[in-house]
Write a protein that binds this DNA or RNA. Structure first.
Lengths: 330, 330
DNA sequence: CGATCGCAAGAAACCGCTTTCACGCGTATG
DNA sequence: CATACGCGTGAAAGCGGTTTCTTGCGATCG
């Protein structure tokens, strides 16, 4: 029924030219009201809707943007994607998702490929190397970057990882912890780098604080595997790279009979929806993925509308103090 | 550089007609090898890639499918989406996501709208009413349904909710539980209906079993809010509607000083990635979202290729027994 | 009252690619 | 040696819209 209707069918049915139908469908104000009514009636009757494809080709706009994420399974990216998608939908835009499956090598070609069939791209690629990104961006514009340092050729929407981590450290320090272990993420990653910077800064601020690092990772399993490192470190508190790592660790600590927060305090990072529901509830720095997704869309929208590019926006994570942190054992 | 290249540019540069360039780009075998080389060289040199848009219009295929989910934030849908997206990508297809934001009213128009700019749609709409779906499907074809009962006009990929729930019930019964409380989901939902059927079946099988139901919901907060219902029920075990509800409940029980599994056993459903990392680890029926996503794509691919529609595939959840269940207090 | 202006609707060009169709070539055939 | 045939290439007609350009009409002005 609605399958193979062309604009000419409507034109014929209404006794006008395709051009007029097009004008009516697009709300062009200088068409005779009588014709408008006739065309609308015809379109209604036939159940006609313009082919988005043909429209896109003619207009050079697809009303669609690409969102590239490293892993659709990761709660942090999901939060951004979710709000982004809804914000875009509210403006009549669609979202094409691309999942690089954490394979950095394919990321570039994947991005270019997906970008070509849309009007712009939001790049969530915290692991991509700076120079690769620089080389890629010109071919992607308009593009918006999520969770990367400020960049000259594209708006950035990012969480303040360093700041968030500092807050967590202050929180632990206030509680009386003087020996803290940081479980690091992926060495190459931009987000990891910024957290390491925060670690360095905290060391400078608190000479009385011992701040160790241990290689870890970014997933449950990595956190669980870190239990020995934690036990052997002698630290009274652990800063997990993110909430996933913290959850894995929490679970492994429980199995090992190590009480949280009595024996050791644990913090996460990101504030995923599950954080309040771990046992004990996880103290974490909650990244406002909702607002970030919304702002990322706003930035993209501005680019698409030709408005001047918005300046970088960084969002301060909010400290969510819960049951997984407490003063160290006296 | 790569911006405004048309096929005619390449044609001119190679000294041939656009038609020939097209043939070469599409690997048409009956072009003179010499020309092929010349055209390829020209394309390479100019960095030309055919406009996907124009191509789509001419071919009537977009190499893109729509995936409609009720909520991008829900881990269960994410699992399916993730694998689906990757499977599609492996076949050179792209994925347009639409998030109905749980607003059933918009779902239909959203689906039609998104569908029109792609070659097919995968519908994850467990809450949509049957008659609405029936009315909608003709306008969406080709379509694949996820987590719905078998349907005549579209392939279905679904988890066996009833079977999974039965397994959980058997597990609890085997442990010795004789009074179980089921926390139900959304009344209208198809998945909920099938679980209720399983409840009824279990009652028939086990006359010695008291199986209560309580209205609940599908999220963390719903589970947490159910703590009083659980406490007041006198049940020794709780079947949460899904893992999210179970986690919310677990957390609230902990706060209330009710020990799991000592005082009460708790089970989830879905087997989200977080389930093993709750405290205690959650016994659940793990839905194989990976295989489902993969099969959903396979079904869609078959439809797109005109192969005969695959028959409904239902996946048995696998029982994952963990620490949240134990024999009832003696 | 005739020439000009304004304006709305139709004709046609265009978006960029694919594919049928027509053509001209070289070779096999009668 | 002329006609038919096969084959590869270019020309042109779509795919389904939008938009510029042109045209014809009625209204206005001199």
């Amino acid at each position: 029924m609605t399958g193979k209707l062309r604009i000419s069918d409507v034109a014929k049915h209404a006794g006008v030219s395709p051009a007029t139908v097009s004008r009516v469908m697009n709300g062009n104000p200088k068409v005779d009201p009588g014709l408008v009514a006739r065309v609308q009636a015809a379109a209604e009757e036939l159940g006609y809707t313009a082919s988005p494809l043909a429209r896109s080709l003619a207009l050079g706009k697809t009303q669609t943007i690409t969102v590239l994420v490293p892993d659709l399974g990761n709660p942090t990216f999901q939060g951004v994607l979710r709000t982004l998608s809804r914000s875009a939908a509210a403006d009549g835009y669609h979202v094409l998702v691309a999942d690089s499956a954490e394979v950095a090598a394919d990321e570039a070609s994947l991005a270019v490929d997906a970008r070509r069939r849309t009007d712009g791209i939001v790049l969530v690629a915290p692991r991509m190397a700076d120079d690769e990104l620089d080389a890629l961006l010109p071919r992607l514009a308009p593009a918006v970057l999520v969770n990367r340092p400020p960049h000259e050729s594209a708006p950035v929407v990012a969480a303040d990882y360093a700041g968030g981590l500092r807050e967590l450290i202050e929180h632990l320090h206030d509680l009386g912890h003087r020996h803290i272990l940081f479980l690091a993420g992926v060495p190459g990653s931009a987000s990891n780098a910024r957290r390491l910077a925060a670690i360095a800064g905290a060391r400078a601020d608190h000479p009385d604080l011992v701040l160790d690092e241990a290689a870890c990772g970014t997933g449950f399993a990595d956190g669980a595997a870190a239990v020995d490192a934690v036990r052997g470190s002698g630290a009274t508190a652990v800063l997990a790279y993110n909430d996933l790592v913290a959850m894995g660790l929490l679970s492994a600590l429980h199995d090992a009979g190590i009480a949280v927060p009595a024996d050791v305090s644990v913090t996460g990072f990101d504030g995923i929806p599950f954080a309040p529901y771990t046992t004990p509830p996880l103290t974490t720095a909650a990244v406002p993925t909702d607002r970030m997704g919304e702002r990322a869309w706003a930035a993209m929208r501005a680019l698409l509308d030709g408005d001047d590019a918005p300046s970088p926006e960084v969002f301060a994570p909010v400290l969510a103090v819960r049951g997984s942190t407490a003063p160290p054992r006296a």
